[in-house]
Simulated assay, not measured.
Amino acid sequence: MISALTLSVGAVNAQLSEGTKVGVATGKGLNADRSGVFWTSPTESSNVVGDFYIDSLWHEGSVKLNAPVTQFGGLESDSLSGITIRYNVLNDELEVLANKNDVRVIKASYLKSFEAKNNGNAQRFVSIKSLIPNTDLKGMCEVLSSGKLTLVKHYKPKITKPNYNPGFGTGQKNTIVRLDSDYYVISNGKSEKFNAGKKSLLALMGDKGKEIESYLKENKATLKSDLVLKNVFDFYNRNSTVN
């Protein structure tokens, strides 16, 4: 596993490079080939504005690659740790803050999974195709709960094209990007889209219906947040492992 010292990240979590600030505003990608894994040199995506990141803040994290590759110093590894990262959903790239003036990316084709530490909690993200091999979905998903029923949140960009009318001077000149997401439940190698609600939850967890009903009542669970859904699925998965 390559250490943080290899990338010279330093104390830069709270500081964005000038290139990154431009990327936040314009949705630029970073795709000039540098070493076979990391890239620099922003590529212009003009007239694109909006939300591109699961979390626009930088967080310490670690990465698992699909296969070992040659890293800095000539060593081969399929892992990186102690690096500073964030995921660009629009470009489907994991940005790595090498130092305050150097942002690089790992393209999705290299990524198997990554973890980001957020307020002491580790968020785990996995390539959607590694969980659902035959899916048409692209990009990464956050694993909220694992077990008999694995709950994931898949992130995707929602794009609104320009509708500017020069004759009347009305409409939007820019392409607008908004972050969108869907829940999926994976069980026995099969997946289905999940609409969070009590009725669909009880239908999904029918074998533990009474226990789930009691849990929802006791915890006043409204199923309106990732954390609440995670807790319900964790409860179900724990109980499903008991003989």
Rank of each mutant, 00 (worst) to 15 (best):
M1W: 09
A4G: 10
L5W: 14
V9I: 02
A11V: 08
V12D: 03
N13L: 13
Q15L: 12
S17F: 04
G19L: 10
G23H: 04
A25F: 14
G27S: 06
L30Y: 15
L30F: 15
N31D: 13
N31Q: 12
S35Q: 15
S35P: 00
T43N: 13
T43Q: 15
S45H: 11
V48S: 08
F52D: 03
I54S: 02
D55T: 01
E60M: 14
G61L: 06
G61E: 06
V63G: 02
K64F: 07
L65Q: 05
L65S: 05
V69L: 15
F72R: 05
S77R: 09
D78S: 08
I85D: 02
R86W: 09
V89M: 09
L90Q: 06
D92W: 10
D92S: 14
E93W: 09
L94T: 03
E95P: 07
N99H: 12
N99P: 01
N101P: 02
R104P: 00
V105A: 10
A108F: 07
L111M: 10
L111D: 04
F114L: 00
A116L: 08
N118L: 11
N119T: 04
G120H: 08
A122S: 05
S127P: 03
S130L: 07
S130P: 04
L131M: 09
N134P: 02
T135C: 07
T135G: 04
D136S: 15
M140Y: 10
M140R: 02
C141Q: 02
V143K: 05
S145A: 15
S146W: 05
G147K: 02
L149W: 08
L151F: 01
V152Y: 07
V152H: 05
K153P: 02
Y155W: 14
Y155V: 02
K156M: 11
P157W: 08
K161T: 08
Y164S: 00
T170Y: 13
T170I: 06
G171D: 07
N174F: 07
T175A: 09
I176Y: 12
V177W: 06
S181L: 02
D182I: 08
N188C: 03
N188D: 14
N195C: 11
G197I: 11
K198E: 12
K198V: 06
K198A: 01
K199L: 11
K199H: 06
L202R: 01
L204H: 00
M205Q: 10
G206R: 04
G206Y: 05
G209T: 11
E211Q: 12
K217C: 07
E218Q: 13
N219A: 03
N219F: 10
A221T: 15
T222M: 14
T222A: 15
K224F: 03
K224T: 01
S225A: 12
L227F: 11
L227S: 14
N231L: 12
F233L: 00
D234F: 10
D234Y: 14
N237P: 03
S240P: 00
T241A: 13
V242A: 13
V242W: 05
N243H: 02
N243E: 10
N243W: 07
